[in-house]
């Protein structure tokens, strides 16, 4: 016969065990926080994540979300806060800003959520200041841009004038791509006469390109930090009826006809469809192996390839 004490303990123990079992049986929920879902690059990334989730059915649940435009930092912060309140297991994030998203991501870490960074690297200085480790899974933007620039350089002569239209200047990937373009132009002896921000988007880049073409009648090339901005630059060149080479970055579908017609000389493929998947693979491995955030690898480099006609 069971003692009264045991009679009291048994259901309690059962309750605790069943709670733990239910907890164990729950699939980890991985939140993917993207940048602009109006940008085909991130649409490809989202599609890749959906394919990954389908092929890993029964292993995790994907919670996919993104912002309206590239500069909507506040919107992205709200998305991360929602993920925290929804108690996801992990967040894979392509931050709209390298610095301003760090505080909210720190909140996620404090809530026990694993965080992995893709696409645009968080600023190491802010991470060090906050004393946190957030792995970056992604390609070397600098290397990719250097290859695109080197391809363009074959068409240039020493002393030729070129200009760079970069993304949001405070972002790490914008700076890395600009550095790669600069290195390639320095090797060719070309003169970078201006660096302007096209905010990663077509319309602002078109305006910047038009201004640059007007200010520099002998400009030979425009190096754009992504293809969305390259579309704007191509439109401006077409309107000016001049022969100015344009290169881009990302290899979005809309770039294909421009590459085919020679209006866009080269771009770089960072395998957008696989980038989020690489990040998700890292968090799934960490969850499975119970790796602490502090002991995750600081960086996992993914491939990048030059794309020409």
């Amino acid at each position: 016969m069971m003692s009264p004490r045991r009679r009291l303990l048994a259901p309690l123990l059962y309750l605790i065990l069943s709670m733990l079992c239910v907890h164990a049986a729950e699939l980890p929920r991985v939140g993917l926080v993207m940048k602009s879902l109006a940008n085909p690059f991130f649409v490809a990334m989202a599609d890749g994540a959906k394919v990954h989730a389908k092929s890993h059915a029964g292993k995790y649940t994907l919670v996919l979300t993104g912002i309206e435009n590239e500069t909507d930092k506040a919107g992205q912060i709200r998305l991360v806060e929602k993920m925290i309140s929804d108690k996801v297991s992990a967040i894979v994030i392509a931050p709209a800003d390298s610095r301003d998203l760090v505080p909210v991501v720190r909140k996620a870490l404090a809530a026990g959520i694993l965080v992995v960074n893709i696409d645009n690297k968080f600023d190491d200085r802010v991470l060090a200041e906050q004393g946190i480790n957030i792995p970056f899974v992604g390609p070397s933007n600098r290397q990719g841009a250097r290859e695109v620039g080197a391809f363009l350089a074959r068409q240039l002569k020493p002393g030729d004038k070129v200009a760079i239209i970069e993304g949001i200047s405070s972002t790490t990937n914008a700076q890395a791509r600009t550095a790669g373009f600069r290195e390639a132009m320095a090797s060719a002896g070309a003169d970078v006469v201006a660096v302007r921000s096209g905010l990663w988007e077509t319309a602002p880049a078109q305006k910047q390109a038009a201004d640059l073409l007007k200010a520099h009648p002998d400009l030979k090339a425009l190096l754009c930090g992504n293809d969305s901005m390259a579309l704007g630059a191509v439109a401006a060149v077409r309107a000016s009826q001049r022969q100015v080479a344009v290169v881009g970055y990302d290899n979005i579908p809309a770039a294909a006809p421009l590459l085919a017609s020679g209006q866009l000389l080269a771009t770089a493929d960072q395998y957008a469809a696989q980038q989020a998947a690489f990040g998700i693979d890292l968090v799934l491995k960490a969850i499975q192996e119970k790796t602490e955030q502090a002991l995750l690898p600081a960086m996992v480099q993914t491939p990048v390839k030059l794309v020409v006609k």
């Binding site: 690297k121 190491d124 060090a128 390609p139 600098r142 290397q143 550095a179 960086m299 480099q301």
Partner: peptide, 14 residues
Amino acid sequence: YAAETTEVLLYLGR
């Protein structure tokens, strides 16, 4: 610090 090197170097601490 140089932002363009942060994909090839890990800046650990000040």
